[in-house]
Write a protein that binds this DNA or RNA. Structure first.
Lengths: 191, 191
DNA sequence: GTGAACACCGACAGTCGGTATGTCATCCGA
DNA sequence: TCGGATGACATACCGACTGTCGGTGTTCAC
């Protein structure tokens, strides 16, 4: 049980890698299974052997992207003992990811529409959102029942600011102003 | 130039009304053009005479829904002289719209995936950002250079909370909690 | 060696969005 | 008032797409 399994894993990985690229570039709806098959040099049967369908393939892609983001976020806040500082560090790191078109298209745009809210939220909670929520809770500056909505609002705000920066004609100045806004928001929200 | 135009407007309206219903009920992707055609008793040619395609039809539906929401939002804050109260009223009114399953599915879930991130943001900002920015500035609780990024963050936060409520398994409880979160956010941000 | 299990293959069916072309009532200028 | 122009469809058709299904070749345990 080695050569067979290895070959299978190789095919699967190739499929996920190619699909990640195409989904990010064209979006889910505008990416045909056939394009993925052709680009990955894999047959139709192989894909349907490994995944439940186009949607199953997307789920695998999403999982892979989220995992990658996760590890980088963890690395960004590693060794930070002050929860407020950890939160600030995580927020600034996340701003960088929203500028990443792979994360933006797959995680932020397509995932809710493709998976539906419940499934998307499940996945998201296990990753970025969960981290921010934990960090928010650790600061002990919010009543327990407000931690979850504030985590969502904070994430949304971060995405918005990141986009504002990315689209600005003067990204450097916009970055300063955006970061200042985020820090001011955190200051006010965390009292 | 009367009978022809009137007939055309009738067909168009019928198409938009039927599509609104089906898009809201099944989501954009799971609604086929043919289903809309059948339900509206309209031919393929008629649809493609009035709209650029399925996406064009969706845009028309979205525009109609947003316009309806807009007028109700304006009505909700009319006659409010205190800028802080006006801002709060507008925010809460918007949150209230998530009880409408049409707004939920079309504006909040499908629009980003169908129109793409950039176009969706454009539309969203035309309908909400201007009002929020003006209201925020009027409160005089923020330095001038932070009004714009805070308006963006607030709008994004409202959208996120609206989504959170919309897709919650228990919308009533989620609504209360979401409203509480927004009010607490405004309280903290506006000092 | 052999039979089961696995990874894969590719022709095919059904559906969908979009197009090309025809038709017919209505309008309008002479 | 009448004939061409125009608007508002109607319909047959096309290519593309997704998912299926019976089969094939390789690998592995015994």
């Amino acid at each position: 049980m080695n050569k067979k399994a290895e070959r299978g894993r190789l095919t699967r990985d190739q499929l996920v890698a190619t699909a990640t690229e195409l989904f990010a570039e064209r979006g889910y709806e505008d990416t045909s299974i056939e394009a993925v098959l052709h680009e990955a040099n894999v047959s139709r049967g192989a894909l349907y052997h490994h995944f439940a369908g186009k949607e199953g393939l997307f789920e695998a892609v999403l999982e892979a992207v989220e995992t990658r983001v996760d590890s980088q976020l963890v690395a960004a806040v590693a060794g930070q003992s002050d929860p407020v500082e950890a939160l600030r560090g995580g927020c600034l790191a996340w701003i960088g990811f929203v500028g990443d078109h792979v994360v933006r298209q797959i995680v932020l745009i397509d995932a809710p529409a493709v998976l539906g809210w419940e499934r998307w939220r499940e996945v998201d909670q296990q990753h970025g959102l969960g981290m921010i929520r934990a960090a928010l809770r650790a600061t002990r500056r919010l009543p327990a029942e407000l931690v979850d909505p504030f985590a969502h609002m904070l994430l949304a705000s971060l995405g918005e600011i990141a986009l504002l920066i990315a689209r600005s004609p003067d990204p450097d100045a916009a970055l300063d102003n955006g970061v200042a806004a985020i820090e001011e928001l955190l200051r006010r929200v965390l009292r």
